[in-house]
Amino acid sequence: MDFRITEDQAALMEGIRSFCMGRVSIDRLRELEGKGFDKQLWQEIAEMGVFALRLPESEGGVDLGMVEAVLVFEELGKAIVPGPLVWSHLAAGLVDGAATGETVVGGLDLTLADGAPHVIEHLEDLDILLVLRDEGVDKIDARSVSGKQVETPFDPLTPVSEASELPAGERIGDAGLSARLRLEGAAITSGFMLGIAETTLDLANAYAKQREQFGRVIGSFQALKHILADCYVRQEAARAAAYAAAATYDDPTVGDVARAASAAKIVAGEAAMKNARACIQVHGGMGFTWEVPAHYYWKRTWVYETVFGTVADHADTLAEVTSQAGA
């Protein structure tokens, strides 16, 4: 047993990190407000192997595992890279062109959020919409969806459209595939949310060391130190849970794959949410301004919280696990 990140994995993360720093800076995000998508950027992300990561080499992929996927999404999360990243990653191998970024794939999980109106992220930029239902997975031509783009999305980098009905698509997989995609989606999303938890702590910590009030840096006030210490604890819990979900997925002999994914989605989800809120709080009035990017993280967290099962959904799942364990 060695739970640490290997050298190769660290190098992979480093590659994504420097890509994000160069290509998806906060300034770039500001330019992308209202769109959240750029075909050129998407192509570059695809070239980094983000979508093809887990595909076998014979299919043009990088042939890596869920651990690497979670680590890559952790880096994407740190930089809150916008776009339907998780769906396109999941679609690689299922939808032609998803892996290379030529086909932009988004999705909708109707197994939990089943009521109309359907809220579809990035619909205007999608080629394909994957729909997860209990019975199976449907592939829909995104242009055939009559959706109305919402004027002011909550996350300025995640435009959404509402659609009251969905056209029938092509069934490309059964209930098993639908369940698998939800599980993979939960694990990968946890990686992204871990990244959000980390950056928000870093931003808050940096500000706490620089901003002065009452003649001293605010980071010397114990009330703030303890907020930040709690952020650290949540970040480390999220890291352990997200990595465990990934490692269990790659080697199911070490545990229960679904249970680990649910635990990760809960713990990482709450870490992202609470750390993003703390980040705003530590920034004071500045944190409430549009200019300070703290709100981007908080808003994106909601996008990820409501997909592949909310904290509450996964808590229901785990309660059943505990109940069985005691039976």
């Binding site: 849970a241 996964h314 808590a315 785990l318």
Partner: peptide
């Protein structure tokens, strides 16, 4: 839900 939540935290703790 609270049980499920705590189960997640215990699993995270062991990890």
């Amino acid at each position: 839900r609270e049980v499920g939540h705590l189960q997640a935290e215990l699993d995270a703790l062991w990890a």
